[in-house]
Computed example of a mutant assay.
Amino acid sequence: MQHIDFELEGEYVELNQLLKLCGLCDSGGAGKALVASGAVRVDGAVESRKTAKIRAGQVVGLGDVEVRVQAGPAQ
């Protein structure tokens, strides 16, 4: 399994944008399609909300890739 550590720049990132920013898809639209297909998990459960707010401490999975979302530097 591949692990990616993603550092937040704000309070949260929308799920479809996270997939794009991590290079798991080419665009936000492609990210929405992946979520709609049921292929994306958040904290182990299938997530169907394309723009779900992903916050520090959550883990997003797609296939054999796991993205760990971490808090960014204090603003």
Rank of each mutant, 00 (worst) to 15 (best):
L21D: 13
G29R: 10
S27K: 07
R41N: 09
A45R: 15
G29Q: 08
L18A: 01
S48L: 15
A52P: 02
T51M: 07
A52C: 05
L19Q: 02
G29E: 09
L19E: 03
K53Y: 12
G57S: 01
S27W: 12
A33M: 14
I54T: 03
A30C: 11
G31Y: 05
Q58D: 01
A56E: 09
R55L: 04
R41I: 04
K32M: 12
Q58F: 00
C25F: 11
A33T: 12
L21A: 08
A36K: 15
K20T: 01
G31F: 10
A33K: 14
G28Y: 10
L21W: 14
G31H: 03
K53S: 05
A56S: 06
G28C: 12
D43I: 07
V42K: 01
G23V: 03
G38N: 08
V35W: 09
G23Y: 05
L24M: 01
E47H: 00
V35K: 04
S27E: 14
A45K: 15
G44N: 06
K53C: 09
L19M: 02
E47K: 02
E47S: 02
D26S: 15
C22N: 02
L24C: 03
V46D: 06
G28Q: 10
V40R: 05
S27R: 05
A33Y: 08
L21K: 10
A30R: 14
S27F: 12
T51H: 11
R49E: 06
L18T: 00
D26I: 08
A30V: 13
K32T: 13
E47C: 05
L34F: 13
Q17I: 12
S48K: 13
G23M: 04
C22E: 02
G31K: 03
L21I: 03
V40T: 07
L18F: 02
V42T: 00
A56K: 03
S27Q: 12
D26T: 12
G29I: 12
L24F: 05
A52S: 03
S48P: 10
K53F: 10
C25H: 06
D26L: 11
Q58N: 01
A33R: 14
G29N: 07
R55D: 01
G44A: 07
D43G: 05
K20A: 00
G57R: 00
V42A: 01
A56I: 02
D26E: 15
G29L: 11
L21H: 08
E47A: 04
K53I: 10
A30F: 11
G31P: 04
G57D: 00
V40E: 06
A36S: 14
A30D: 15
R41D: 05
A45V: 15
V46E: 10
L21Q: 11
Q17D: 13
A45E: 15
L19D: 00
G38S: 06
L24S: 02
G38A: 08
D26F: 07
G23L: 06
R55W: 01
K53L: 13
L18Q: 01
D43P: 01
D43E: 08
G57F: 05
A45G: 07
G38R: 07
S37V: 12
V40Q: 04
T51Y: 08
K20I: 04
V42D: 00
A36M: 10
K32S: 15
G29A: 09
V35R: 02
Q17A: 13
R49N: 06
A56T: 04
S27M: 12
D43A: 08
Q58C: 00
S48H: 14
A30K: 15
